[in-house]
Amino acid sequence: MTLPRITSPHAKGANRTQRVMLLVMAAAVPGILVLSYFFGIGPLLNITLACSFALLFEAAILALRQRPVAFFLKDGSVLVTGLLLALALPPYSPWWLIAVASGFAVVFGKQLFGGLGQNPFNPAMLGYVVVLISFPVEMTAWPAAHSIDVAAGLQYVFFGQALPDGWSQATVLDSLKTNSNLTLQELWDSNPAFGLFAGYSSEWVNLSFLLGGLFLLRKKLFSWHAPVGMLAALFIMSLVFWNGSGSDSHGSPLFHLLSGATMLGAFFIVTDPVSSATSVQGRLIFGVGVGILVYIIRAWGGYPDGVAFAILLMNLCAPTIDYFTRPRTYGHQTAKRGFKTGE
């Protein structure tokens, strides 16, 4: 009789990583649809390019590192990185910009640290910040909603042709930041980029990402702590520093919750299990930190939106947060408080 030579664990669930990644991609669908409604094929173009480049770089570096290429590509994590990157970049980003961003995300953000599970920073945000710092002109060229000239867009993406006048439009966060003499009401009336509460397009995009995020929350992919911490902190910060609707306004709480990358960050990036804090308490602190930093950067910083910077800065803090929020080990006495407050 031969005994099967299998080591534990013997009971395996479905391929966890793969399932998680598929769910995340599914949850992004409403956001992608809404983005496409406003910006035509731009977002889809971004996604196709970013995912292809990310796959290419991942395969190349896995081969260089002499790891099984197909095995690691199948877990889908690189596709999620590409997808999130594509959603954060302005629709119709030039192909080389997407290549640089995906390259940095996969090679420098993930593989150089040892691949999935080892990366201290969220790869997508790292790639995004690299191109944001390096190519600020391209990164501020968000197309104006609906008025997309597809042919011009394609020529810009693939052949570097100059964009026609009026093709791109400052985002609402940018307009608010560069505003010097208009009250909020005047700004709303004068600029078609503003919608009901936040941006004409960005409020719907944010709501759709919120929808996707709630789906993931319901599927128990992550606990509520990090996203709620971030959104609550952003809300409270914008309420405390809400200085009216004059020309020096920083924008209302609702405006901050529904513009820029708030919801994408809160439900798709802050919840990254690898680069965020691990304990429940730690995740709450992590989220709150992100929310506070987002507001600080938006209101007083050098860039209109701060979600990517805030997340990378908190990624840096995650090990420290983990150190101070370690749950009590069973049988050890020291953490009396932890025993009462924890579950």
């Binding site: 710092i133 390096s134 190519f135 600020p136 002109v137 050098g302």
Partner: peptide, 8 residues
């Protein structure tokens, strides 16, 4: 002398 954003 200035401290404006590089590239912009």
């Amino acid at each position: 002398h200035h401290k404006e954003t590089p590239g912009l």
